[in-house]
């Protein structure tokens, strides 16, 4: 079955996108990403050491951009200006690559997005030719605004970044999914495989996660579990679940031909 995820005109076989933070070392990062089957991997952009630590390994040597679609993020940015500047540096770093993850944070405790700044940055980036995948609040109105502005994908949180609290807002996610004409991905909140399956069963086009894999007791095994969960949730969504029958049972076995009748 050809069921690829299309973002900004490019097809991907995997609907699981993964972050590269919080791993023990680059070997574990690469092993977990390979087990996840993810083709799109997020990275952060940070100041390099300026000669204090020569020969320091570089993440892009472990995850070569020829093999993975690198999705630079703006994690840690609290203003539209900082986010735009960061992504212009990322585009230069990645030789003109346009696909980016925009996130403008509003508060260090919750890492909730600052939506006015997010909208402002999205507008500038889209005009500047970026394909913007945008971390956003689970607000259908603002998700639609981002889509109308030309964002390539909207990525509402399911619960707080790094919290592992799971899908706390299925109704809002459904409202966003039902109205969207661009891919909707859950970005943030997934804690274990069933959370990823639930997101996909709701009709999300994909799931982006980092901590759920990196902070599992066995990250490589959890990456494999997440790969299957996203696939199984997607198949269940496409299959179409049976309608719920409240307060009424419906036997699966024949009601006639019972012995002694």
């Amino acid at each position: 079955m050809n069921d690829s995820l299309v973002i900004a005109g490019k097809s991907y076989g995997s609907r699981l996108l993964v972050g590269t933070g919080k791993y023990k070392d680059f070997d574990e990062t690469r092993a977990a990403i390979d087990a996840s089957g993810a083709e799109i991997v997020t990275v952060a952009i940070r100041r390099t050491n300026i000669g204090q630590n020569p020969g320091e390994p570089n993440l892009l040597d472990v995850l070569p951009p020829e093999k993975f679609t690198i999705l630079p993020n703006t994690a840690g940015c609290y203003t539209a200006d900082d986010a735009v500047r960061t992504l212009r540096l990322a585009r230069e770093l990645l030789d003109g690559h346009a696909l980016v993850k925009l996130e403008v944070l509003g508060d260090p405790k919750t890492l909730f997005p600052n939506m006015p700044e997010t909208l402002k940055a999205a507008e500038v980036l889209v005009k500047d030719g970026f394909d913007v995948m945008v971390y956003c609040a689970d607000d259908p109105i603002q998700a639609k605004m981002l889509e109308d502005m030309g964002c390539a994908a909207v990525m509402p949180l399911a619960s707080l970044i790094g919290s592992g609290m799971g899908i706390l807002n299925p109704w809002n996610l459904r409202l966003i999914i039902d109205q969207a004409n661009v891919p909707v991905l859950v970005d943030a909140g997934v804690g274990t495989a069933s959370d990823a399956a639930i997101a996909m069963e709701l009709g999300c086009d994909g799931v982006l996660m980092n901590t759920a894999i990196a902070h599992a007791q066995n990250p490589v095994l959890m990456a494999s579990a997440m790969k299957k969960a996203v696939e199984c949730g997607r198949e269940a969504f496409l299959a179409g679940r049976m309608p719920r029958k409240f307060y009424t049972a419906d036997p699966s076995s024949p009601t006639s031909g019972l012995i002694g009748s």
Partner: peptide
């Protein structure tokens, strides 16, 4: 990158030199 060799730094310049690091 194509202009690194011809861009002469001047007194008072502010440079940012960045790389990709692990992140979500």
């Amino acid at each position: 990158k194509g202009r690194h060799a011809e861009t002469l730094l001047a007194d008072g310049d502010r440079l940012e030199i960045v790389v990709a690091v692990g992140g979500g």
